[in-house]
């Protein structure tokens, strides 16, 4: 549980397009790291390279090493399916499986892993939904379709689905961007709770959110149009938002960007 991630000199490509240039960054276990930066600078791309989802895009590839507690997830002997089982992901748009009930959505990952025991599945379902602060709202309609929930509930359902398999790391790509302020707060509180058990990396465009939930913040930027994105600096969130060492970071977080 809760492993550390070391990204070492990672370059990411979409076909011939060099999207992200040489990122080196460490994420300590049981902490929240926020990725911030202007649109198109490669935050999602870096995030998706951490659970080998990047290579799902045709022609996309990653160079460099990503170590999970010292083990390279890009080593030739490593099965990407196994990597994704231990590193959970929550997407920008809530994506519960529309043909499945709430219960089946939550335990989908477990079922994939071969768990069939009904009692165990129900147990995990309840625990995950409680963990995602959704249990009280849905406990009476677990057999209804997951698509019938509100956007915020759907996103919490997706978080429940991701934590049901007890991953080592939880990646979140702008998990609140489609949500109202109340649901956003609910998810931010949830992230603070989940930090006890998981290593969390979150991409966000909301500076206040980064300041509220993260321990460490990484600022990415584009050197120019058509240039690859790069990591400008990474530091304690407090330091980044009060006294960043790079001018570009200060400009960005104070809204003087671009």
């Amino acid at each position: 549980m809760a492993k550390r991630i070391d990204i070492k000199d990672v370059n990411i490509y979409y076909g011939k397009f060099h999207a992200v240039d040489s990122v080196t960054l460490s994420v300590p276990p049981r902490s929240v790291t926020a990725f911030i930066g202007p649109s198109g600078c490669g935050k999602s791309t870096v995030l998706r390279s951490l659970n080998r989802m990047h290579e799902v895009t045709p022609g996309a590839r990653v160079e460099g090493r990503v170590l999970l507690d010292g083990e390279d997830i890009y080593a030739p002997s490593v099965d990407p399916v196994e990597v994704r089982r231990t590193i959970g992901m929550v997407f920008q748009r809530p994506n519960p499986f529309p043909t499945m009930s709430i219960r089946d959505n939550v335990v989908a990952g477990l079922k994939l892993a071969g768990v069939r025991n009904r009692k165990k599945l129900d147990e995990v379902c309840e625990r995950s939904l409680r963990g995602a602060n959704l249990w009280e709202e849905v406990k009476d309609r677990l057999d209804r379709p997951g698509g019938g929930l509100s956007g915020g509930q759907q996103q919490r359902l997706c978080i429940a689905r991701a934590i049901a398999v007890q991953p080592d790391v939880l990646l979140m790509d702008e998990p609140c961007s489609a949500l109202d302020p109340i649901s956003t707060l609910a998810i931010e509180d949830l992230i603070t709770e989940l930090k006890q058990d998981f290593t969390i990396v979150i991409v966000t465009h909301n500076m206040q959110q980064a300041a509220r939930v993260s321990d460490q913040t990484a600022f990415f930027n584009l050197a120019g149009v058509g240039q690859p994105g790069r990591l400008v600096e990474v530091d304690d969130t407090e330091k980044i938002f009060s006294n960043p060492s790079q001018k570009a970071t200060e400009d960005y977080i104070s809204g003087r960007f671009g």
Binding site: N51, M53, V56, V81, E82, R84, R85, T86, G88, M89, F91, R93, N95, P96, F97, P98, T99, M100, A108, G109, L112, A113, C158, R161, A162, V165
Partner: peptide, 24 residues
């Protein structure tokens, strides 16, 4: 997003097809 949701949960290709593409 459904396909990626399944893959991100650790579905193999066939499992992804079974949980998302076929029902859809």
């Amino acid at each position: 997003e459904h396909i990626e949701g399944a893959l991100a949960l650790g579905a193999t290709k066939w499992e992804m097809l079974r949980t998302t593409v076929l029902p859809f």
